[in-house]
């Protein structure tokens, strides 16, 4: 039995970024919700897990600091990924996550494809919704970081801004957090786990590679450009070992279930928060 050919999709460092984001994001959701829902029975329960109202804030702050550091490291990493000999082509090329005109075209084609009115758009390395996923986090993190730091140091903030900016910061922090949580736990989880081509789990972000056949079907323009530039051989990858697959399946499902648990309870208890 010959192993099916696979191509590399995510490097080790990219997977580590994703893994650390998963863990920190989940911790932030749990500690943040435990405070947002402190007036409800459920909120008190998860708050107790983190050692109470003050302790959960302490954890929330430190995990936030870790996330901010991660964001800075990631941004530095982004700059190392640019090919500085051809920066424009590298940033706006088809290997890049920067949105371009083709994304709009693909979106139109995909709507037609949904209803069987056209053929599948020929996606390149990143589809437009994957780009949206990426940039949603990329602007959400600094927004949460800035408002979070404002709330972390209210006295310092009120030296530079009027005190009522803390009202705005608190609202923005909460609203952006709810936006991120609902998007990740509904849309991102559906794309990663539930849709037929991913079910039971899209392993690319953990194994780092995808079967060539699957890539050819989903992202034909990517495989084609790899072939044309002769890089296809260079990016071939080995299949993930079995124990590793078991580990990340268990981990992935644990995160999925925990996220859905937080989301459902969050929606159920939303009316009892007691704030405006």
């Amino acid at each position: 039995m010959t192993p099916t050919p696979r191509i590399k999709r995510f490097s080790v460092i990219e997977r580590l970024f994703h893994l650390s984001l998963m863990i920190t994001f989940l911790l932030q959701t749990a500690t943040g919700f435990s405070r947002l829902y402190i007036t409800t029975a459920w909120g008190k329960k998860i708050n107790a897990v983190f050692g109470g109202y003050d302790n959960s804030l302490l954890i929330h702050k430190w995990v936030g600091v870790v996330m901010m550091v991660g964001f800075v490291i990631h941004t530095v990493y982004l700059f190392t990924r640019i090919n500085w000999r051809t920066p424009v082509k590298s940033v706006f090329g088809e290997d890049s996550l920067v949105p371009n005109i083709a994304d709009l075209k693909h979106f139109g084609q995909r709507i037609l494809w949904f209803f069987g009115l056209g053929s599948r758009p020929r996606f390149s390395r990143w589809t437009y919704w994957e780009k949206f996923d990426y940039w949603a986090v990329y602007w959400g993190l600094p927004l949460l970081a800035i408002t979070g730091v404002m709330l972390m140091y209210p006295m310092v903030t009120s030296r530079f801004l009027p005190g009522w900016s803390l009202n705005i910061a608190a609202l923005l922090h909460r609203a952006e957090a709810i936006l991120a949580v609902t998007y990740i736990f509904i849309v991102h989880f559906f794309i990663g786990h539930l849709r037929p081509s991913s079910f039971p789990m899209n392993e690319a972000m953990f194994s780092g590679s995808v079967p060539l056949e699957e890539a050819n079907e989903e992202k034909p323009a990517w495989v084609e450009s790899l072939q044309n530039s002769g890089r296809l051989k260079m990016v071939s990858a080995a299949a993930p070992v079995l124990w590793y697959r078991v580990v990340y399946f268990v981990f992935g499902y644990a995160v999925l279930l925990f996220g859905v648990y937080l989301l459902i309870n969050g929606i159920m208890y939303a009316r009892q928060v007691g704030l405006h």
Partner: peptide, 17 residues
Amino acid sequence: TLAFFIPHSFLTGVREL
């Protein structure tokens, strides 16, 4: 965002089926 992406994801799922 949700009004766009929930139907978008759902239609993706249905169509892939």
